[in-house]
Design a protein around this nucleic acid. Sequence first.
DNA 1: TTGTAAGCGTTATCAG
DNA 2: CTGATAACGCTTACAA
Lengths: 376, 376
Amino acid sequence: MPEGAHRPRRGATTIEEVARAAGVSRQTVSNALNAPQRVRPETLERVNAAIRELGYQPDQSARSLRSGARRTIGYLAPVDDPLDPNPLMAGFLEALVDAAGAAGQRVLLFRPGQGTADPVAAIDELVAARQVDGLVLADVLREDVRIAHVTGLGVPFVSFGRTGPGQPQRWVDIGNEAAMAEVVRHLAALGHRRIGYVGAAEELPWTAARRAGFLAEARRLGLSAVATGARRAGTSESGDSGPGRSGAAAEGSVAASVRALLRGPGRPTAFAAGSDLLALDVYEAVRAEGLVVGPGGVAVTGFYDMPLCRHLHPALTSVRLPLRPIATALVGRLLAQVRGEAVPGEGLELPTELVARGSSGRSGGPDRSGWSGWFG
Amino acid sequence: MPEGAHRPRRGATTIEEVARAAGVSRQTVSNALNAPQRVRPETLERVNAAIRELGYQPDQSARSLRSGARRTIGYLAPVDDPLDPNPLMAGFLEALVDAAGAAGQRVLLFRPGQGTADPVAAIDELVAARQVDGLVLADVLREDVRIAHVTGLGVPFVSFGRTGPGQPQRWVDIGNEAAMAEVVRHLAALGHRRIGYVGAAEELPWTAARRAGFLAEARRLGLSAVATGARRAGTSESGDSGPGRSGAAAEGSVAASVRALLRGPGRPTAFAAGSDLLALDVYEAVRAEGLVVGPGGVAVTGFYDMPLCRHLHPALTSVRLPLRPIATALVGRLLAQVRGEAVPGEGLELPTELVARGSSGRSGGPDRSGWSGWFG
DNA sequence: TTGTAAGCGTTATCAG
DNA sequence: CTGATAACGCTTACAA
């Protein structure tokens, strides 16, 4: 039999040893840790010294078993296209782990078992094994089967992305309309009067919100606006100072649509894309028409502020998601539920940040060059 | 006091209830779960039926406390530039969670406390609280303080990235030399005879390996090769069929170096970049010289196969990391240690996969267009 | 093969 | 404010 396999970790300091070292009972050590105000200051100091000296940390399993608190929150990783992994996940997870850590919680990552794309079973397992105090769900749709399920389970949860009207409003999200309105004002301030919106082929709640925010602000400012790209929407709206046009070539590729607009009369001098990837298509379309992206040419903006934005030529102006505030809000609201407190408000909408770069009028080059980081 | 806060989760099924329902002792239920061969088939079936009916899962805390096995592995998220989050992390974590899940393990994500950039303290906390059976470290340097520390702690671990000569060889890594050799052969097969390597400004072990692999294979094939970009290296080597040149403008930007080469005599017809981000700079340099990237123009390849590769114009040929095999190997070797088995071999080098796209001679466009995914 | 007894390390209860 | 006792739910010995 292999030495020490699957046994309690050798040499792990226990509360008993600390108690002996400090000359108190183990109960007093526990109190010093969980209710310091109930211990006499001098005793407390002696205990803390022993704890420090021995490098003691309570065994989390024992603590959880006894107290019921797991001190761990589960994050259900979105099951997305393996060919198109979420480029923001790293930044979001870092923010989530930091926010959780600041609240004394750890983060357990989980996913549906391979083959089984069913997130419900994965959630059930985790909950039944009592491994987490609550769940964080991301990329939530209005009518999301996960939301309904965890609601039925009675497990504390929060979602990144707003839930539907009939469902518990325990979400944190960004303000999509406001974000695009800011983009429009940014372009208007740069002197653009004819602007285009480039949306995804398939409309989702948040992309619809961006489109709507764009059109509303353009109208408010009296700009000539044209939207393209949405298969379901095909919507279009125009301001006072110019003729509106329907979303052309909604079925074709994004690049083709943009090129058509650029060749047409009254061509837009700026394009706001619904995502950074769409902005790449706009870059290509602009160049294919013999035009240039950036100052003196066609302005382009993206959405999400993916890491690559800073590396493009020119660097792409984009809308940055407030990942740390989002994570902090998610953790705060989740733990409030865990503690049994009333969750404040219905949902929380956080503001985005417009990051202006060369593609909309600053210096033409990328922010950095000559990479020396891990992935340079 | 809030109802049910911080108490053991209400309604959680216990092993006792299962035993009662199946008409056996709770011991038999435990055996049915942990040593099924020791239970009579008909009894086993009865117990399993009860388990299924009640949706029973053993309380992981109780199980861990008693058995010592946490069934959880810790992943120390790299502390990287917040402005440049790892775009491969999502894919790697998905692979890691899946591989761990297949082995009955969960993944706990952790990071140094905010402000405290010291990973050692974070490791100590996790280990002292006995929350994991072992650790996965990523982005490991040859002389890595984390490796030395966990070695001293006696905690099972594996690293993604090879460790130094004097340190325990418990790593999994990719074959950087072989990867670049494959790139060179790919370019040679397309008819390129004069090729350039574009490296990062700051040389790291793996980028040095890529450069060396590139130069060695180019020499072997008798190609004219020139390398640029490394601040420390400045190395250059030439094959038989052409004159070698020193890494020009090693201090300047990557784009400037590439442009100089493109303007010089015997200009390369293809560039292999040490990363996808560097390849973006090459794209720009090629265009700035009035040339075109792709078939009929200058071929370009990258490294890492970041998600964005497929979205560029033209789509970028790149070297894909075998994330799932890597994750499987990491988990396998880690759990072997946890079980006390001897770890096979010294370290494991896994092969990469060259993904040929438009930038090195296929169709010019991106692989997809008109995004409809989450981030499209 | 199954049941009985003990204890993993911690925290809650209640007596001093 | 401190110290003894019990219990959280489970798995490992050992006895039936």
